[in-house]
Write a protein that binds this DNA or RNA. Structure first.
Length: 304
DNA sequence: AAGACGAAAGTGGTTGA
DNA sequence: TCAACAACTTTCGTCTT
């Protein structure tokens, strides 16, 4: 398809994935490169002999988000056989025992039990946040490592799961704030943040520093802004980064401020309040950041 | 009436002795 | 472990559109 060609034409670092809409967007041209990419699920074509070998077995794809990697058989709860006939009482008892045994075997060790529960949590939170599959799987891998290292002992599964999700988002550069994730946990922001720091320290999970530019497509699309506004905002942030005035600042706040300025310049004005709300910061922060950006970069704002 | 502005005081997290 | 510190928030009165 031509959209694939377009994506190749675009320089790598200028492509941004807007996971809200499932689109790849080029920051240079603002062009939508690929529509409706919901997530990158397993690819079922096999190109090499080994791949064929790996994929020839029956069953779903192996996936780390199911605690046993999706390999269990589930015995139906209905007391009927494959043809739908009711089972004989004796046979029924046998099946009952079998079912019980299978459940025990499935959730055998404490690690497995832990993972089973954790994966439920992971799915729950990921669903609420509408996270793509790639993040869920990354989070599952991180969580698994945490369990294996015994980091969960003494802490709630939920908060470690939330921390894993946050780490996965950061790794894959899918901007989600800690607050958004912590919102769906009982543990609260503070505890999740502590677990997140623990994960960083104890596992070798390296996380790229949060880039405010990553927040632009999300905030921009939620405000219904045109591509040119987002491009302008990205330019502003790029300049700011070179000037070294972005360090230590909340990336969401910086992105919000850049968008505010860009929207003014492009005659697509949005109020500080609107922007602050979707960016998850206050108006005051948007104000402070945008004043600073305008001053440092000597941007002349149009008179209102 | 709504938006923008900035001062002042409070919060939570980081850093360095 | 404690205090200093920067960034951010909350709140509020004032000015502008």
């Amino acid at each position: 398809m031509s959209s694939e060609n377009k994506r190749e034409e675009c320089p790598e670092d200028m492509i941004i994935f807007d996971e809200e809409r499932g689109e790849y967007i080029c920051l240079e041209t603002g062009e939508v490169l690929e529509h409706h990419v919901i997530d990158q699920g397993p690819e079922w074509r096999a190109f090499t002999p080994e791949e064929k070998e790996r994929r020839s077995r029956v069953g779903g794809p192996l996936t780390p988000t199911v605690h046993d990697k999706g390999l269990t058989t589930v015995i139906d709860w209905r007391d009927r056989d494959a043809t739908g006939k009711k089972l004989e009482p004796k046979r029924r008892l046998e099946i009952l025992r079998w079912r019980k045994w299978q459940i025990r075997a499935r959730i055998q060790s404490s690690i497995d039990r832990n993972l089973a529960q954790a994966m439920n949590e992971l799915e729950r939170i990921s669903d609420l946040l509408r996270l793509p599959k790639s993040v869920r799987e990354e989070a599952a891998v991180i969580y698994r490592k945490a369990v294996e290292k015994g980091l969960v002992r003494g802490r709630s599964i939920e908060s470690i799961v939330a921390a894993s999700i946050y780490a996965a988002c950061r790794r894959l550069r899918i901007p989600r704030t800690l607050d958004e994730i912590a919102e769906y946990t009982k543990a609260g922001r503070k505890e999740v943040a502590r677990c997140y720091r623990l994960l960083l320290k104890e596992l070798e999970v390296n996380v790229p520093i949060a880039d405010p530019i990553d927040y632009i497509p999300r905030i921009g699309s939620q405000l219904g802004l045109q591509g040119k506004v987002m491009r302008r905002a990205a330019e502003i942030l790029e300049q700011a980064k070179h000037k070294g005035i972005t360090a230590g600042k909340d990336p969401a706040g910086l992105a919000a401020a850049a968008i505010y300025i860009a929207a003014l310049l492009e005659d697509e004005r949005r109020t500080q309040k609107e922007i602050a709300q979707v960016a998850g910061v206050t108006e005051v922060t948007v104000r402070n950041r945008y004043k600073e950006l305008a001053r440092e970069l000597e941007i002349n704002l149009p008179p209102q």
